[in-house]
Amino acid sequence: MNTMLNDMEELVTPAPGVVVKTEPVVIKRPVARHFGHLDALESEAIHIMREVAAECANPTLLFSGGKDSIVLLRLAEKAFRPGRFPFPLMHIDTGHNFPEVIEFRDRRVKQLGERLIVRSMEDSIRQGRVVLRSENQSRNPFQSVTLLDAIAEFQFDACIGGARRDEEKARAKERIFSFRDEFGQWDPKNQRPELWDIYNTRVHPGENIRVFPISNWTELDVWEYIAREELEVPHIYFAHKRDVIRRGTGLLPLSHLVQPTEGEKVENLMVRFRTVGDMSCTCPVESPAASVGEIIAETAITRITERGATRMDDQTSEASMERRKKEGYF
């Protein structure tokens, strides 16, 4: 006891009655209350968003109208209501988006009463910052240019994004708080160690952090959360009849960007999208799943990865995502 009293003198005593505990830890079981994996993932994401809001000077949240960023918005509501979001939303518009998704994006932003910044690749092309080989070429890889320009324009020091580690091999190795140098580049061999859930958010001017609050979620978790929270998603996620063309191993939606070439025929199939991105390279899958419940059932037994099934641009080489991320893609 004497040594303990001596030690007490070293304490900055906050108030009378400070007790130095040395007895072994006794853990009482809590009142029975179920805290499932979605609750755990949700609480982790809310904690992450609040750290960004508290420590970053000028953050933004990337909202595309896709399911992952729809989940991010609900998490932001849970993190910051009854207050307003402490950051604007931003969309990098490739100009090749599905019109339903853009309509949904604007409606959702209006419902929330939050601010949306849209920066478009068309502008980057007009300014000569992006040079495409052909008008119909996939624009996904070039989003980085517009994104980096927007980060510079608004001097964002943190961009919250909806990427998940289960999507792709390179993402599996990325931190939740992922540091980017002044060129917006990711260096996979030189990442900051990330311990417990103590996040290092510090950057020098010109550098930024990409933050992925749903890093630990899988495609199935996202759909289960959409079901639990009764979140609206764009209609193209549900089964519908659509004109498509078989190309390589996937289906491509017929549009002004994708027309049949010689030998290809247009089919009208029951399809749904698992991701919504650039129309020229986002492939729907054949599916009869017309509700969130049916999508969950299908996702739980599906045998093909989300990007494997739906993104032509990720199939060009085993390292495509890694290369794009190094160049500044989120």
């Binding site: 179920h34 499932g36 994996h37 979605l38 755990a40 199935l220 639990r228 059932a297 739980a300």
Partner: peptide, 8 residues
Amino acid sequence: ISFDHSEL
């Protein structure tokens, strides 16, 4: 195949 109440 309900995963709703699974733990992490």
